[in-house]
Deep mutational scan, measured.
Amino acid sequence: KAKLLVLLYAFVATDADTICIGYHANNSTDTVDTILEKNVAVTHSVNLLEDSHNGKLCKLKGIAPLQLGKCNITGWLLGNPECDSLLPARSWSYIVETPNSENGACYPGDLIDYEELREQLSSVSSLERFEIFPKESSWPNHTFNGVTVSCSHRGKSSFYRNLLWLTKKGDSYPKLTNSYVNNKGKEVLVLWGVHHPSSSDEQQSLYSNGNAYVSVASSNYNRRFTPEIAARPKVRDQHGRMNYYWTLLEPGDTIIFEATGNLIAPWYAFALSRGFESGIITSNASMHECNTKCQTPQGAINSNLPFQNIHPVTIGECPKYVRSTKLRMVTGLRNIPSIQYRGLFGAIAGFIEGGWTGMIDGWYGYHHQNEQGSGYAADQKSTQNAINGITNKVNSVIEKMNTQFTAVGKEFNNLEKRMENLNKKVDDGFLDIWTYNAELLVLLENERTLDFHDLNVKNLYEKVKSQLKNNAKEIGNGCFEFYHKCDNECMESVRNGTYDYPKYSEESKLNR
C-alpha cells in the first residue's frame, strides 16, 4: 500500500503543469573576455578590431598615390635624371617610397634638414613645378651647363633637372645676384646647392675665386655659405661634395641669391598645395585598381571598426592602431551559463540550468507544459528593451572611439638618435595607453552587458513569482510547478501579467 502511494505521488508530481523562465541559446562559437572571465561563450557579439588588409596600394578616395619607385624624396625633388618619370607629377593622395629606393642625390652630399622637408611634404597633396630662374636668361655671365658622370643618364654625363651647376664663363666668375618674388599665391619650395671641391685647383678651375661665398636671403631665411675645400674619400667617382638646401617662400615674399662661386642654382621650384589627408609611407606593396579610405604600408583597410592592429602608420580615415589581438564586445547572452554566478555589478545569474535553442524569437521568455502540450514563448517587451539598450551602447562606444585619422611616422637624422629613441618611447607609451583603454573598455562593457542580461532574466522570474504567489511552488531551476490546472489561456495570463490569483487560489489551497 505504501509503495502504491509513492508511485501515485510521483505520477501526480510529474503530471503537474509547469512554467519556466529562460533565455535564448544557439550554436554560436563566439567568445568574449570580461573583467572576471576569459573566453566566455556568448550567443552574439561584435568585433571592434580590424585585423585584415588587402595587401595592395590603392587610390585614396579615388585619387591615385605618387609612387616614387626607384627614387626617394631627395632624388625626386632635386631632379635626379633617373627620376625623370616623376617630373610630370602634379597631385596625389599620398606618397609612396620603397624601403630600398636607390636614386637620391646622384652627386654625393646631403639634403640639409631632410627630415623636416619630409614632414612638410606629408601635408602636401599637389604642386606646380615651374621655372623659377629661366636657364637661358638668368645667368648671362656664367656657364650653366655643368654636368657630371655621377648623374649620368643613358650613358652620358648629366645633372639634376631642377638645378643648374653654374661655373665660370671664360676665365671669370663675376659676382651674381638674382631674385624671385613669389607671385603664386601659395608657398613655394625653393631648392639650391653649394659645391665643396676637393682641392684649391678644382676650386680655381671651376670658379676662378679662391674665397667664394654663397648667400641666400628671404624674410624668414638668411644664410651665408662658404665652400669647404678638403680631400675626401671618393664616392660615386667624386672627391667633391654638394650640400643641398631648401626653404619655403611665403606668398609675396622675395628670395635673393648672391654668389661669387660654388652656387648650384635653382632652375625649377614648386608651388605647394596642402592636403590634410596626405602623407608619406614606405612600402613594398604594389599598386592595383582599387579604392580605399584608409591606406597602410601593408595594404588598404576598408573598415568602419574603431581599432586596427595592422600597422601604426596610416593615411586617410583609419581606425586607431592598438596592439590588441582581440577586441570583441558582447551583444547577446551567455551561451554556457554559470550556476549560481554573481556578476561584478550585482546581477544574479545561473538559476537557469541552460539556455534554450528552441526559443528563437527572443532573448528571454517562457517554456510551459500542461495537458494541452508544451512550447516556448519569447517575452518580446523585455527582449526589445534589451536590444535597444545594447545597440545604443555599442553604437555609442564605437562612435566615441571611432575617431579616424592619419598617423604618419616621424623623421630623425643620424645625429638625432637620442631624440628618436625618446620619441619611440613616448609613442610606445601612448600606444600602451590606447591599447589598455580599449581593452579595459571592452572588458568592463562585456561584464556589464552579461550582468544586464542576467538581471533581465531574474526580473522576469520575479515578475512571475509575484503573480503566482503560493498558487505554485519554485522547483529550483527557474521553473514553477502549479498547484492547479493551468491551461493555455492561464499560461498566457502569466506571461502577459494578467494572471488571476484569486481564481485559482482555492484549487491551489486544496492541492498544497
Results as ranks from 00 to 15, higher is better:
K1E: 07
K3H: 11
L4Q: 05
L5G: 02
A13K: 09
T14W: 09
T14K: 03
T14Q: 01
D15W: 11
D15L: 12
A16W: 11
D17P: 04
I19N: 09
I19K: 15
I19P: 02
C20I: 00
I21C: 04
I21W: 02
H24M: 11
S28G: 10
V32M: 04
V32I: 15
E37P: 00
K38Y: 06
H44D: 11
S52A: 15
S52C: 00
N54Q: 10
N54E: 09
C58F: 05
K61Q: 13
Q67T: 11
Q67V: 13
L68Q: 02
C71Y: 08
W76V: 10
G79H: 03
G79Y: 06
D84W: 02
L87H: 07
P88E: 11
V96S: 01
E97R: 03
E97Q: 14
E102A: 10
E102K: 07
N103C: 09
C106D: 02
C106H: 05
P108G: 01
P108N: 02
D113L: 12
E116I: 08
E116W: 12
R118M: 01
Q120C: 06
Q120S: 11
S123C: 05
S125E: 11
I132P: 02
F133C: 07
F133Q: 03
P134T: 10
E136L: 11
S137H: 07
S137F: 06
W139S: 00
N141F: 02
H142R: 05
N145V: 09
G146Y: 07
V149M: 07
H153C: 11
G155Q: 13
F159M: 11
F159D: 03
R161W: 06
N162F: 03
N162V: 02
L163G: 04
L163Y: 01
W165D: 05
T167S: 13
T167P: 00
D171P: 13
K175S: 12
T177D: 10
S179R: 06
S179T: 13
V181R: 10
N182L: 00
K184A: 12
K186T: 13
G193R: 00
H196Q: 14
S200F: 06
D201E: 15
E202V: 05
Q203P: 01
S205W: 00
G210M: 07
A212T: 14
Y213A: 10
V214K: 04
S215F: 14
S215Y: 04
V216M: 12
S219D: 07
N222A: 11
N222L: 13
P227T: 11
P227I: 15
I229R: 06
V235C: 05
H239V: 07
H239T: 13
G240Q: 07
T247M: 14
L248M: 15
L249D: 02
P251N: 06
D253G: 14
I255S: 01
E258Q: 06
N262R: 01
L263M: 12
P266N: 13
P266T: 02
F270R: 00
A271Q: 09
A271P: 00
L272T: 10
R274G: 04
R274F: 11
G275K: 11
F276W: 10
E277H: 13
